[in-house]
Design a binder for these strands. Structure first.
Lengths: 357, 357
DNA sequence: TTCGGGTCAGAGAGCGCTCTCTGGGGAGTG
DNA sequence: CACTCCCCAGAGAGCGCTCTCTGACCCGAA
């Protein structure tokens, strides 16, 4: 060893903040030494195990705070076989990520899992397809996943359940399968919309549906038809949309094209998503139809476009935050007791009345 | 040991999927045994270390795929002292999470870190304040964090940098400090807006600013004033807003209140955020001012309200995805080489012309 | 043949934690 | 007073991986 000049430290380190920097993290071992107890006892204190003497506990707690100990999660995970993290998986067709719905899900999930010390990891199924997500779970980086907006062809739900990994779906699966999901009663929501239109005096109603291969699309149409029948209304106009703004506009154009000069056609319109409604409204306006005077419009989702468009949209609200919180709870439950029977939850929608209908 | 009935397995397990379920995960050790090599060699193959004989490598790779081996990340983290995860920290005043901006950040960050095998962990500073985030890093659950929308009083940037933890800020810090950040040239963006208004024939311009304690608010106002001076325009009207829709509406009311009967006042309006602009537009309309005929309006952000409002907004676009990707790159770089000098990046804004101005 | 040098696989020591098992000591009982 | 029982702290064995160090083996040069 050549003796040389040490720039930082070298003798007794000055006390204070600087000494913290670049120092090796404190381990259980060191806390134990400071407290004059064994590693096991410190571990018990850290994890809140009750069988520790009061006095001893205080000594340990003091040692923890003076040393500034923070447990290494990787080491703990290695033993407990828990990652302490769950995944939120979005299909990245670009759309979902930019949908405010996504933020609502996050703000529903976080309050449930943070107090449990569980992290929320964000992923899309975008690049490597789905294997990445499965790998994340198999590598024990994720204890389970919440799947958003899976579509018909999505192999992920099956892939994950077949590997017996904890999954919760946001929305009913396309094909019936043994999987936990949380959904809103879509049909009932559509019914709420029709009830409202009828209460406001509409007699000839129309609908722009979602894509009919999606369960949400199917269910909202079914609920719409059932409510129309229940109220004894004449056969409604039905045009299929695709949940996009442009799709809503296109569908609206087809609807007004079939409308006669003096109002035969429809006086109430249920659009199966707010985004489509924001596409449909300008079409109606350009056709000279005033909303809500000539046509009353009700949307679905209560997403931000609903309040931003003109006029603000009466719409069916899904309690997304509550649903997300429930998904988180179900997932955590499933991670902790994989043997429990799976169970799903369906929420009731509500109607938010604004100016459009 | 009492001999008893074993329900699952017990003899030779039937081959196939069922056997995978509930089985203990495969370890390096087992792969090594199957391949007839040492644990070290398998590790070398898994991690792509070059000094492994070609043939041997193939044998190991085969063993990996037949056993279905997936490395345990916790074990790896324990040794490498890398969590393999970075945090995206949002201040939860409710707003940010529901802002589409947030989704754009995520979709900029993910493509950068996923190929590196790094996870994105979402957090807010909401409940326990900021200690939680610091703890996450100290517990080595997070290698570093990206901080979004920090405000003046936010202690987090300082807290993290003082602990010498890798941080990247989205936006210039309020007070100058030694920290990596990525931002758009706010002043230049405001200049773009004024240039456009002038090119469209405006002579008397006004602005609704952001909150002036925020750097973005200050910089956009400064850029606005500089451009106004550069074009030799008369003293502009300036009203302070707060980046919210309601704040935009309130500011617009104050502006039109000062406007005389025959158009003395302003014919061009720069609103420092799209959201505020969506609040301002209806106010102008109710005052009988047509956009863009009577007043041309330019917003800032190119967020979704810009395309949803009526008329669609001409606005200054921040390349949010690119900026987010850059933040991710800077953070990863910083995690890998903490000794490197810190560096920040400023992006150029562009103008998106729509119908409002 | 001997020897130096280079290549590459194996041995083994941890990383920091949890958790079971052991055992000391005090209280209660016969 | 001896014995049992219980309570609670310590010892120590891993969890599954990485990475350094050792050493076997082969090749070419002396």
């Amino acid at each position: 060893m050549t003796p040389g000049v040490r720039f930082h430290g070298g003798g007794a380190a000055p006390p204070g903040i600087k000494a913290d920097v670049d120092r090796r993290p404190v381990t259980l071992e060191e806390v134990a030494r400071v407290a004059g107890v064994s590693r096991a006892t410190v571990s018990r204190v850290v994890n809140g195990v009750a069988t520790v003497d009061r006095e001893l506990r205080q000594v340990v707690e003091k040692a923890i705070s003076t040393t500034g100990y923070a447990p290494n999660r990787a080491a703990r995970s290695l033993v407990t076989r828990r990652a302490g993290a769950i995944g939120l998986v979005l299909p990245d067709e670009g759309r979902t990520l930019h949908d405010p719905y996504f933020g609502r899900v996050v703000s529903g999930v976080l309050p449930v899992i943070r107090p449990l010390g569980v992290q929320l990891v964000l992923t899309t199924t975008d690049p490597g397809g789905h294997q990445e997500v499965v790998d994340d779970v198999r590598q024990r980086r994720l204890d389970g996943v919440i799947l958003i907006h899976t579509h018909d062809a999505d192999p992920l739900p099956r892939l994950l359940t077949e590997s017996n990994l904890p999954v919760v779906l946001a929305a009913r699966p396309v094909r019936p399968m043994s999987i936990t999901y949380v959904d809103v009663d879509q049909a009932a929501g559509a019914g709420l919309a029709v009830d409202h239109l009828v209460a406001r005096g509409c007699r000839r109603v129309a609908t722009v549906t979602g894509p009919l291969e999606a369960p949400a699309g199917q269910d909202r149409l079914r609920g719409f038809r059932e409510a129309v029948a229940r109220h004894g209304l004449p056969e409604p106009l039905v045009v299929e949309g695709d949940f996009s703004r442009e799709g809503g506009a296109a569908a609206a154009r087809r609807l007004v094209a079939g409308r006669g000069p003096l109002g035969e056609g429809f006086d109430g319109l249920f659009v199966a998503s707010d985004l489509m409604a924001t596409g449909a409204l300008p079409v109606l306006r350009h056709r000279g139809l005033r909303v809500p005077e000539d046509v009353k419009v009700v949307g679905f989702d209560d997403s931000s476009p609903a309040v931003e468009c003109d006029p603000p949209l009466t719409t069916v609200r899904q309690p997304v935050e509550d649903m997300a919180a429930e998904m988180a709870r179900l997932l955590v439950e499933r991670v902790e007791r994989p043997d429990r029977p799976i169970s799903s939850v369906v929420f009731a929608p509500t109607l938010v009345v604004r100016q459009s209908g």
